[in-house]
C-alpha cells in the first residue's frame, strides 16, 4: 500500500515539474545516455532488495529507492533503464555501462580509492544465520559461543572482516561465491554459521533454509566502521553530487524511511550479540 502511495507521490512530483526532464537540472548531460538514467543491479538481484529479480517493477527496497532517487533527480519512471553488472565489472577500469550501481555495496575507504560511492542509503546490521540444530546444540548470541562455531561467508562481502576481526573463530572460515553456495554448505553440515546483512539473513532463514534461524545480530552502529550501503559510481563521477542531492531530498522528506519501513520492516526482534 505504502509503495503505491510512494509511486503516486513520485508521479505527482514528476508531473508537477512539467517537462519530465529540465535542461538545467544537475543530471543534465552527465548520464551515459542523454535524458536516461541507467541503474545497475545484481544478476540475479535478491529479495528483499529487488523482488522477483525484476527491478523494473520498482518492488523491493533498492528498486524503490532507485526510482525515488531518479524521481528526485528529475527522471520520469520510463526514463530509468536497468542494467546488470557484478562487483568485478563495477570496479574494473574503463567505461561503465551504468550511471550508478545498487546492490548492497558497502562503503569502505579502500574501495573508495578506486570507485565513487554516494552517501549511504541504508545502514545494515550483520546477522548470524544458523540452522535450528546449531541452536539446539547450545549456540547462543554471545561472542564466546560464536567463536566455537565453524564459519562461512560470501568471499566478496564485508561480512568476512567482521568474522575474522570481531568474532575471531577458532577454526578458519570457509568462503563461497554467493548466498546459494553458503546455504548449500550449511545444509551439508560443512559450516555452522554464516554472516549476512540482516535483511538477506532474514530471507535466507525464512525462505531458503528449511530449518534456518537467526542467532543474533551485530547492530549497524555497534562496530567502529558500520556497514553502510552506497550507490557505486565511476571514480570521479560527475553525477555524484546530483545523486547525493537527490538522496538528501528523499531522506529529509521521509520517502527513504517510508521505503525502508515498507520493505525492510521485519528487521527488529533479532537478539543483539553480546
Amino acid at each position: 500500500m505504502t509503495m503505491q502511495k510512494i509511486s503516486m507521490a513520485l508521479a505527482a512530483l514528476v508531473l508537477s515539474s512539467g517537462s519530465a526532464f529540465a535542461a538545467d537540472h544537475c543530471a543534465a548531460g552527465k548520464t551515459i545516455s542523454d535524458g536516461v538514467l541507467t541503474i545497475a543491479t545484481g544478476n540475479p538481484a535478491y529479495y528483499p532488495w529487488v523482488m522477483d529479480d525484476a527491478p523494473e517493477s520498482g518492488a523491493g527496497f533498492e528498486a524503490a529507492v532507485a526510482y525515488a532517487v531518479a524521481g528526485a533527480m528529475g527522471f520520469a519512471k520510463e526514463d530509468v533503464v536497468w542494467a546488470r553488472a557484478g562487483f568485478d565489472e563495477s570496479i574494473q577500469p574503463g567505461a561503465k555501462n551504468f550511471d550508478f550501481n545498487m546492490q548492497q555495496f558497502s562503503i569502505t575507504e579502500a574501495r573508495e580509492a578506486v570507485i565513487d560511492f554516494s552517501d549511504p542509503y541504508y545502514s545494515a546490521s550483520m546477522a548470524v544465520l544458523v540452522r535450528q540444530s546449531t541452536v539446539d546444540a547450545g549456540a547462543t548470541a554471545t561472542l564466546a559461543s560464536l567463536k566455537g562455531l565453524k564459519w562461512g561467508a560470501v568471499a566478496s562481502t564485508t561480512a568476512l572482516p567482521v568474522v575474522t576481526e570481531i568474532i575471531v573463530p577458532s577454526a578458519s572460515p570457509l568462503l563461497y561465491d554467493d548466498n546459494t553456495n553458503v546455504v548449500e554448505a550449511m545444509k551439508a553440515g560443512q559450516i555452522d554459521a554464516a554472516l549476512f546483512d540482516l535483511p538477506t539473513a532474514l530471507y535466507l532463514s525464512a525462505v531458503v533454509l528449511d530449518d534456518g534461524a537467526l542467532l543474533g545480530q551485530f547492530p549497524a552502529d555497534s562496530t567502529e566502521s558500520p556497514d553502510q550501503f552506497g550507490m557505486l559510481m565511476e571514480d570521479g563521477s560527475a553525477l555524484r553530487a546530483c545523486v547525493n542531492e537527490a538522496l538528501g531530498e528523499i531522506t529529509s522528506n521521509g520517502t527513504l524511511a517510508a521505503i525502508e519501513a515498507e520493505w525492510l520492516q521485519e528487521t527488529t526482534g533479532v537478539p543483539v550479540i553480546k
Binding site: F87, I91, Q92, A110, R111, V114, A155, L160, L175
Partner: peptide, 14 residues
C-alpha cells in the same frame, strides 16, 4: 585464488 578474490573485494583492486 579465493584469497586473491577476498583481497580484490576488500580493496576493489585486481
Amino acid at each position: 585464488l579465493r584469497q586473491a578474490g577476498v583481497y580484490k573485494s576488500l580493496m576493489a583492486n585486481f
